[in-house]
């Protein structure tokens, strides 16, 4: 086996690298590159295939696809403005709810408010939320959540109807139940990743905070939250990505109505719900339009994730020295 060595000139030998070490190192590196390239290629391939299928619709409807809000298969008029609005609005609302609760849960479970074993049980329960099938949550939304929400929604509409967000009553399915279920689905993601962010805070930072004489609340809000902020931000980006693409529960709960409204109780629609509910009965032309909508959804999701990664790269706050 060849050894690559320095020549000391006097016959003694320096430490070398075996050829086998170098080869296995190269093989391992090649394997890593292949795996990474494979993932990227897969993504590109899927986007490309869907793009090709959507091409006729892209040529027919062009950019006005994004700026109109009729979806009429008979007249062959297709526009997804209302769905884009519904997707972003519902995901954002769900993210606000899941963000507040998820970060609170993360603080509660990592900052010694509970004995370890109890915190572990709570953690498992929160993770189990993620295991509830979407369709089950959808059914729960229809049979439990909507009946509970209706009197509340009616009261809010009657009393504060002058506010845009309460400007309609809840007829049945609508934005509010969809958003609440969406928040439940996103919560485990936000909570789990935020918990990681809090647990990654080095012990010496805790010592520094308490050593300055902070109360626990001050330590959490003035030191730990800023220290964990980039991890928390990452949890929100991932949660938002999940919310954008969530399909089944939304198709069941949001009301599938092509309208743009601030009202929390109005029926609305999202891109994913549109795809799921229209595809089974769509003719070839409508299918092309739906594929175009799928491209739009893919684009929005990618954009959100890329923006998130960029923002994180530039702020780069959680430096662990």
């Amino acid at each position: 086996m060849t050894m690559i060595n320095f020549d000391t000139g006097d016959g003694t030998v320096t430490h070398g690298i075996r050829a086998s070490e170098r080869i296995s190192d190269r093989l391992f590196r090649a394997a890593c590159y292949t795996a990474a390239a494979g993932v990227i290629l897969l993504l590109v391939y899927i986007a490309f295939q869907i793009g090709v299928k959507a091409l006729p619709a892209m040529q027919d409807y062009g950019f006005s696809f994004f700026t109109t809000q009729t979806w009429n298969a008979q007249k062959q008029e297709f526009g997804i403005l209302a769905e884009i609005w519904g997707t972003l609005y519902s995901s954002l609302l769900a993210l606000v709810i899941a963000g507040v609760f998820g970060v609170s849960v993360a603080i509660f479970l990592t900052q010694d408010y509970l004995p370890r074993w109890l915190a572990q049980i709570f953690r498992t329960i929160v993770e189990l939320l993620a295991a509830i099938p979407s369709v089950v949550l959808g059914l729960w939304g229809i049979y439990v959540l909507i009946p509970v929400l209706r009197p509340i929604a009616d009261f809010l509409h009657d009393t504060f109807g002058f506010l845009g967000i309460f400007s309609t009553a809840l007829p049945g399915p609508g934005l509010a139940p969809a958003v609440i279920v969406l928040a439940i689905m996103v919560l485990p993601t936000v909570a789990a990743i935020s918990q990681d962010a809090f647990q990654l805070i080095p012990g010496k930072v805790k010592e520094a905070a308490y050593g300055m004489g902070t109360t626990r609340r001050e330590a959490i809000f003035k030191v730990f939250l800023p220290t964990a902020s980039s991890g928390i931000f990452a949890s929100l980006v991932l949660g938002f990505g999940r919310a954008l693409g969530e399909t089944m529960a939304l198709a069941m709960l949001i009301g599938n109505s092509n309208q743009i409204s601030w009202s929390l109780f109005a029926p609305a629609n999202t891109l994913a719900a549109l795809l799921a509910s229209s595809w089974p009965e769509a003719g070839p032309i409508e299918q092309q339009a739906l594929l175009y909508a799928a491209v739009a959804l893919l684009g929005i999701t990618l954009l959100v994730n890329v923006a998130g990664v960029l923002i994180m790269a530039f702020s780069n706050k959680q430096q662990v020295s």
Binding site: P202, K204, V205, E207, A208, G213, T227
Partner: peptide, 18 residues
């Protein structure tokens, strides 16, 4: 908390806040 506000501490490992 009151004690630590009046008796400060510097640690072996530097631990500035982020």
């Amino acid at each position: 908390v009151l004690v630590r506000r009046n008796i400060g501490m510097v640690f072996q490992q530097p631990n500035p806040f982020s």
